[in-house]
Amino acid sequence: MVEVRLRVNGTDEPLDIQPQVSLLDALREYLGLTGTKKGCDQGACGACTVLADGERINSCLALAVQYEGREITTIEGLDHPLQGAFVRHDGFQCGYCTSGQICSAVGMLAEHKDGMPSAVTKQASGGELSAAEIRERMSGNLCRCGAYNGIVGAIQEVAR
């Protein structure tokens, strides 16, 4: 066992866990924060996306022990205009990917503001976030219900 002190949504969370426990399992199974979802558990779907010091990551491929000292934010710790926008735009059907989508979108908007380029951006960044940009920058989050139009609409509304 390893002693780990995670900081999640502004609270210190001391844990005694095996080193192979993922950040995702630590959040869900040890801290009861089940808003973050386990989809593929192999970094292919994005349902487990959380923020570490404001950067979006796949918590399924993160060992909890590696994230000691980092500020983890999950959907339970967010109070963001995107949440209402997803409801208004029908940005989901079953809802399973939604917490990951929203955490990812929060990280994405910050990246875009900081000038992070993308495979779609031809010029140095800044400027408007087009639908094509949003689709590229959000490609790490799959929605098997296919609510992509609503997701893009919700993000565009908040980005404006």
Partner: peptide
Amino acid sequence: LSQAILCGASAQLRNM
């Protein structure tokens, strides 16, 4: 190099 990286994986994975 910048383009190759941005064509790989997803933003979450590239952050890690």
